[in-house]
Protein backbone atom coordinates (compact mmCIF):
# COMPACT_ATOMS: atom_id res chain seq x y z
CA UNK A 1 0.00 0.00 0.00
CA UNK A 2 2.68 2.46 1.09
CA UNK A 3 4.99 1.28 -1.69
CA UNK A 4 2.17 1.95 -4.13
CA UNK A 5 1.69 5.46 -2.78
CA UNK A 6 5.39 6.14 -3.09
CA UNK A 7 5.44 4.99 -6.70
CA UNK A 8 2.37 7.10 -7.36
CA UNK A 9 4.03 10.23 -6.05
CA UNK A 10 7.17 9.59 -8.10
CA UNK A 11 5.16 9.09 -11.27
CA UNK A 12 2.80 11.98 -10.62
CA UNK A 13 4.88 14.73 -12.21
CA UNK A 14 5.75 12.99 -15.49
CA UNK A 15 2.21 11.65 -15.84
CA UNK A 16 0.57 15.00 -15.14
CA UNK A 17 2.80 16.74 -17.67
CA UNK A 18 2.23 14.02 -20.26
CA UNK A 19 -1.52 14.23 -19.73
CA UNK A 20 -1.63 18.01 -20.03
CA UNK A 21 0.56 18.16 -23.12
CA UNK A 22 -1.23 15.37 -24.98
CA UNK A 23 -4.70 16.67 -24.17
CA UNK A 24 -3.48 20.10 -25.25
CA UNK A 25 -2.15 18.77 -28.55
CA UNK A 26 -5.35 16.79 -29.08
CA UNK A 27 -7.38 19.99 -28.62
CA UNK A 28 -5.10 21.76 -31.12
CA UNK A 29 -3.49 24.01 -28.51
CA UNK A 30 -0.16 25.44 -29.69
CA UNK A 31 1.60 23.82 -26.75
CA UNK A 32 5.03 25.37 -27.13
CA UNK A 33 3.72 28.89 -27.62
CA UNK A 34 1.29 28.61 -24.72
CA UNK A 35 4.02 27.24 -22.45
CA UNK A 36 6.35 30.15 -23.20
CA UNK A 37 3.52 32.61 -22.75
CA UNK A 38 2.74 31.24 -19.29
CA UNK A 39 6.37 30.82 -18.25
CA UNK A 40 7.01 34.52 -18.87
CA UNK A 41 5.25 35.32 -15.61
CA UNK A 42 7.68 33.19 -13.62
CA UNK A 43 10.31 35.86 -13.35
CA UNK A 44 8.06 38.77 -12.42
CA UNK A 45 6.20 36.73 -9.81
CA UNK A 46 9.42 35.56 -8.18
CA UNK A 47 10.86 39.06 -8.10
CA UNK A 48 7.60 40.54 -6.81
CA UNK A 49 7.72 38.47 -3.62
CA UNK A 50 11.25 39.57 -2.66
CA UNK A 51 10.30 42.56 -0.46
CA UNK A 52 7.66 40.54 1.41
CA UNK A 53 10.01 37.63 1.88
CA UNK A 54 12.84 39.85 3.12
CA UNK A 55 10.52 41.58 5.60
CA UNK A 56 9.13 38.35 6.99
CA UNK A 57 12.28 36.25 7.06
CA UNK A 58 14.36 39.02 8.65
CA UNK A 59 11.92 39.47 11.51
CA UNK A 60 11.88 35.71 12.05
CA UNK A 61 15.68 35.56 11.73
CA UNK A 62 16.13 38.20 14.42
CA UNK A 63 13.69 36.41 16.68
CA UNK A 64 15.54 33.13 16.33
CA UNK A 65 19.03 34.63 16.69
CA UNK A 66 18.08 36.44 19.90
CA UNK A 67 17.29 33.21 21.73
CA UNK A 68 13.76 34.44 22.50
CA UNK A 69 12.57 30.98 21.56
CA UNK A 70 14.13 29.43 24.68
CA UNK A 71 12.44 32.00 26.88
CA UNK A 72 9.10 31.45 25.16
CA UNK A 73 9.51 27.69 25.50
CA UNK A 74 10.27 27.77 29.19
CA UNK A 75 7.51 30.30 29.85
CA UNK A 76 4.94 28.10 28.17
CA UNK A 77 6.24 24.79 29.50
CA UNK A 78 3.77 24.44 32.41
CA UNK A 79 0.93 24.79 29.93
CA UNK A 80 2.42 22.46 27.33
CA UNK A 81 3.30 19.84 29.93
CA UNK A 82 -0.30 19.92 31.09
CA UNK A 83 -1.55 18.92 27.64
CA UNK A 84 1.13 16.26 27.31
CA UNK A 85 3.69 17.80 24.97
CA UNK A 86 7.19 16.83 26.13
CA UNK A 87 9.28 19.94 26.71
CA UNK A 88 11.92 18.63 24.29
CA UNK A 89 9.45 18.69 21.41
CA UNK A 90 7.72 21.98 22.13
CA UNK A 91 10.35 24.19 20.42
CA UNK A 92 9.62 22.23 17.24
CA UNK A 93 5.92 23.05 17.57
CA UNK A 94 6.80 26.75 17.55
CA UNK A 95 9.62 26.79 15.03
CA UNK A 96 7.80 24.80 12.37
CA UNK A 97 5.64 27.87 11.73
CA UNK A 98 8.65 30.09 11.30
CA UNK A 99 11.38 28.27 9.46
CA UNK A 100 11.36 25.17 7.29
CA UNK A 101 15.10 24.50 7.45
CA UNK A 102 15.19 25.27 11.16
CA UNK A 103 12.46 22.80 11.99
CA UNK A 104 13.96 20.12 9.75
CA UNK A 105 17.25 20.49 11.64
CA UNK A 106 15.52 20.36 15.00
CA UNK A 107 13.47 17.31 14.06
CA UNK A 108 16.60 15.50 12.87
CA UNK A 109 18.35 16.40 16.13
CA UNK A 110 15.49 15.11 18.26
CA UNK A 111 15.24 11.85 16.34
CA UNK A 112 19.01 11.40 16.58
CA UNK A 113 19.17 12.16 20.31
CA UNK A 114 16.16 10.16 21.46
CA UNK A 115 16.01 7.55 18.69
CA UNK A 116 13.91 7.64 15.54
CA UNK A 117 11.43 5.11 16.90
CA UNK A 118 11.12 6.61 20.39
CA UNK A 119 8.03 8.53 21.45
CA UNK A 120 9.82 11.85 21.01
CA UNK A 121 11.28 10.77 17.67
CA UNK A 122 7.90 9.72 16.32
CA UNK A 123 6.08 12.74 17.70
CA UNK A 124 8.58 15.12 16.15
CA UNK A 125 8.26 13.30 12.83
CA UNK A 126 4.47 13.56 12.87
CA UNK A 127 4.68 17.24 13.80
CA UNK A 128 7.16 17.83 11.04
CA UNK A 129 5.07 15.96 8.48
CA UNK A 130 1.94 17.89 9.36
CA UNK A 131 3.60 21.28 9.39
CA UNK A 132 3.59 24.17 6.99
CA UNK A 133 5.77 27.22 7.53
CA UNK A 134 2.74 29.45 7.98
CA UNK A 135 4.55 32.75 7.93
CA UNK A 136 6.54 31.89 4.82
CA UNK A 137 3.35 30.93 2.99
CA UNK A 138 1.67 34.13 4.17
CA UNK A 139 4.55 36.29 2.96
CA UNK A 140 4.93 34.56 -0.39
CA UNK A 141 1.26 34.10 -1.30
CA UNK A 142 0.04 37.51 -0.20
CA UNK A 143 3.26 39.16 -1.39
CA UNK A 144 2.79 37.87 -4.91
CA UNK A 145 -0.40 39.93 -5.29
CA UNK A 146 0.70 42.87 -3.16
CA UNK A 147 -1.66 42.13 -0.26
CA UNK A 148 -0.42 43.87 2.87
CA UNK A 149 -3.55 43.61 5.02
CA UNK A 150 -3.83 39.91 5.74
CA UNK A 151 -6.98 40.18 7.93
CA UNK A 152 -7.77 36.91 9.69
CA UNK A 153 -5.47 34.67 7.63
CA UNK A 154 -2.56 34.63 10.16
CA UNK A 155 -4.96 33.78 12.97
CA UNK A 156 -6.53 30.85 11.10
CA UNK A 157 -3.08 29.63 10.10
CA UNK A 158 -1.89 29.64 13.70
CA UNK A 159 -5.13 27.99 14.79
CA UNK A 160 -4.58 25.19 12.28
CA UNK A 161 -1.07 24.71 13.64
CA UNK A 162 -2.16 24.53 17.26
CA UNK A 163 -4.84 21.98 16.41
CA UNK A 164 -2.42 19.83 14.43
CA UNK A 165 0.10 19.86 17.31
CA UNK A 166 -2.54 18.76 19.80
CA UNK A 167 -3.90 16.04 17.52
CA UNK A 168 -0.36 14.83 16.80
CA UNK A 169 0.35 14.42 20.51
CA UNK A 170 -2.91 12.58 21.12
CA UNK A 171 -2.45 10.25 18.15
CA UNK A 172 1.19 9.41 18.77
CA UNK A 173 0.41 8.72 22.43
CA UNK A 174 -2.50 6.51 21.52
CA UNK A 175 -0.77 4.61 18.73
CA UNK A 176 2.80 4.18 19.91
CA UNK A 177 2.89 4.48 23.67
Amino acid sequence: MIELLKILSTLAVPLVILLIVTVGAFKKVKVYEEFVEGAKEGFTTAVRIIPYLVAMLCAIGMFRASGAMDILTSALSPFTNAIGIPSEVFPLAVIRNLSGSGSLGLMTDLAKTYGADSFIGRLSAVMMGSHETTFYVLAVYFGSVGVKKARHAPLSGIFADIISVIISVILVRAMFL
Binding site: I17, I20, V23, G24, F35, G38, G42
Partner: peptide, 9 residues
Protein backbone atom coordinates in the same frame (compact mmCIF):
# COMPACT_ATOMS: atom_id res chain seq x y z
CA UNK B 1 3.93 27.31 -18.52
CA UNK B 2 2.39 23.86 -17.99
CA UNK B 3 -0.56 25.52 -16.28
CA UNK B 4 -1.11 27.75 -19.28
CA UNK B 5 -1.30 24.73 -21.60
CA UNK B 6 -3.73 23.03 -19.22
CA UNK B 7 -5.85 26.17 -19.21
CA UNK B 8 -5.89 26.46 -23.00
CA UNK B 9 -6.78 22.77 -23.25
Amino acid sequence: GIMKIAEAA
